[in-house]
Amino acid sequence: MVTQHLLGPAEIRELAARLGVRPTKKLGQNFVHDPNTVRRIVAAAGLDADDVAVEVGPGLGSLTLGLLAAARHVHAVEIDPVLAGALAETAGHPDSLTVHRADALRISTADLTPPPTALVANLPYNVAVPVVLHLLAELPSLRHGLVMVQKEVADRLVAGPGSKVYGIPSLKLAWYASSRSAGKVPPAVFWPVPNVDSGLVAFTRRDPPRADVNRDRVFAVVDAAFAQRRKTLRAALAGWAGSPDRAAAALVAAGVDPGARGESLTIGQFADIAAGVPVPAGAGE
């Protein structure tokens, strides 16, 4: 861990001007320029001195500097070559920082040494959910994390059964981890200022609800259940199961009413449903 001076609004703009960086909507770049917000994120992440953090989209480095002061090591994954090239200098070239010029959706456990234990990131709005799910799938060493995403996305990620915004992101995150809202972040702390609020989502990894069912198979049931959200599960899962009757049989075997809808079920119930339909011969898992 190293002690770091955090970047304020003037320093963020000066650094961007020196690098010739203009934030782009395509990459979802909104840079945090408020030191108090950085401190709040780092504190909410609950890092300890042994944690190895992975940060996606570090941008100009405002959150990176906060993480370096709290974690044993920081992996910063940045797709923009200019930003990736400047980050180590901004941080003062500490040994505890490894910068990866890479697409986070292509990162695997072999790319990150030492293995990360925490994901802490201000995620680009357009890839937030895929990045979180990909990293939880690819990095088994991740134990916990805190991500800042669009408030609407944050609400979906932490929603529970019965909520109007409960759906595929909620369920797939629940396969890997328990999650909770860790607060709201106003637009004014970013440059450029987005036209939406942001939300903090904290998560803690846990064992999947069932060890005997392939994750992709469970996710296929979830996808089918929400492809036509208003349909009953008997109808929505007919294609997946092979027929409405087979879907109904799998639902009854799992203790689920065939007339129920996907938004009323937990990830554990979806795993039970997935376990109830035999995999066709030759299909594999």
Rank of each mutant, 00 (worst) to 15 (best):
V218G: 03
Y176S: 02
G167N: 11
P209F: 00
G66N: 12
V256L: 12
P161W: 07
N122A: 09
V21N: 08
L157F: 03
A43M: 00
A137W: 13
A159G: 00
L233N: 06
T232A: 06
I267W: 01
D216I: 09
P35L: 02
G199D: 01
R156S: 03
M148G: 10
H134C: 03
I267S: 04
L251A: 00
A110L: 10
E263H: 13
S181A: 14
A69Q: 05
R261P: 09
E14G: 15
V54N: 04
V131P: 14
V149Y: 11
L136Q: 10
I273M: 06
F226T: 02
N126K: 13
G199F: 02
T3H: 14
H75M: 12
S264Y: 11
A275Q: 02
L6F: 13
H144P: 10
V213I: 15
Q150W: 07
V38L: 04
A250S: 05
P23M: 14
G239N: 06
P278R: 11
P81T: 07
G162T: 05
L83S: 09
L19E: 01
D155L: 00
G255D: 00
D245N: 07
D197F: 14
E138M: 14
V277R: 08
D245F: 08
S198P: 08
I12K: 04
S108M: 01
A16W: 06
G59A: 11
N30L: 08
S108Y: 01
L233A: 02
V32C: 12
V165C: 05
G57E: 10
R180D: 14
E89T: 13
S163N: 00
V42K: 07
A88S: 15
L251W: 08
A121I: 07
L67T: 01
H33R: 12
E11W: 00
D223P: 10
G28S: 03
V32G: 06
I267F: 05
A128E: 06
H75P: 07
R143G: 15
W240R: 04
M148F: 04
A17Y: 13
A102I: 11
I107V: 15
N122H: 06
R234W: 03
V165A: 08
G59Q: 10
T3K: 15
K172P: 08
T204L: 05
A43E: 15
V149T: 10
S141P: 02
L171H: 04
G242F: 12
R106I: 03
P58V: 13
V52N: 09
P186V: 13
A43C: 00
A76G: 02
L133K: 12
A241W: 05
T232M: 08
G28A: 12
H5T: 15
T204W: 11
L67H: 02
R206N: 06
P115H: 02
G199E: 06
L233E: 05
D95A: 15
L83F: 01
D216H: 15
